Simulated assay, not measured.
Amino acid sequence: SDAEVDDGGADVRCEDAAAWLAEYEPPESVSDAKAGTLDKLRAGGKEPLRPRVRFFDRNATDEAFEALIEAVDGEKRVFEGHVDAFDLTRSEAESLAREIEIDHGGFGFRQPSSIYHRFMTGLTGGKMSSSVPASHISLLDDPDEGYEKVRAATTGGRDTAAEQRELGGEADECPVYELYAYLLAGDDDELTKEVYSECVNGERLCGGCKEQAAELMREFLEDHQEKRAEAEALLDDLDIDLDSDRRGTGGEH
């Protein structure tokens, strides 16, 4: 009979993985990566396939890259243009690379990060638009105008006060609640929670809620514009010219 071979402890080599991948049909979403991965695996030949961290010398000076190679602890393999480390975690590798970079005159910037934005709903219920003044509040709006815009805003309230008390409002669909959450409450998280809770539990009606928000908006604009005027006066004292030679829309300065 055929002998069974237990190769569970044997290294899987790059060429073995390449042979397997060549026969594998990946999902369409990642199929474009197959060819490049195959090339890398075939180039690895009999190299064991195991986790590693790879350092590239794309932006490093020769001196800095040599120092990095010297600083890598544990097993490592040095190639032209990169070095593979087998005993470092990714975070340890990033920290080491940053340390070497700083030691050799670099800035040690962290890897770029992504940021995500949630657009506020416009006061009229759709998106904010500069062509629809009622949908947004400008920092240069007259405070009384800001007050009136909030008073006229769409809400997540029910059709009648009775329904609001019975069913509660829909704060998650309310532009006025967003004003509290993102601006008007400032650092007072308790106010935001209070407005939300009272709304969804039917304890807060839209008229009073908008009046409170409108007053806070007026106060915010008054305070902001006062500080803006103070800053402009300071710039005048410093003789700083903010005029730009860049042309705006329609060729106007």
Rank of each mutant, 00 (worst) to 15 (best):
Y180T: 07
M217Y: 07
Y147A: 02
A152S: 08
I240K: 14
E148M: 10
E148W: 11
G157A: 10
E194A: 11
G157I: 01
A161D: 13
E222Q: 14
E170W: 11
Q164F: 04
E148H: 11
A213T: 04
T155H: 01
Q212Y: 09
K193S: 13
V200T: 12
A185D: 09
T192M: 07
T155C: 00
F220Q: 09
A185T: 09
L234K: 15
C206A: 00
A229Q: 15
R165A: 08
V195D: 05
R218T: 08
L167P: 00
Y180Q: 06
Q164D: 03
L235T: 13
A181T: 02
G156N: 07
R218L: 08
L191D: 03
G207A: 05
G186D: 07
D237G: 15
E219W: 05
Q164N: 04
A231N: 13
G157L: 00
A233I: 08
A152N: 10
V195T: 02
L205R: 03
V176R: 03
E145S: 10
E173L: 10
E198R: 14
L235P: 12
D239E: 15
G202S: 10
A181L: 11
A153M: 01
E163C: 00
T154E: 07
M217E: 08
V200E: 12
D189S: 11
T160R: 02
R158F: 02
A152P: 01
P175C: 05
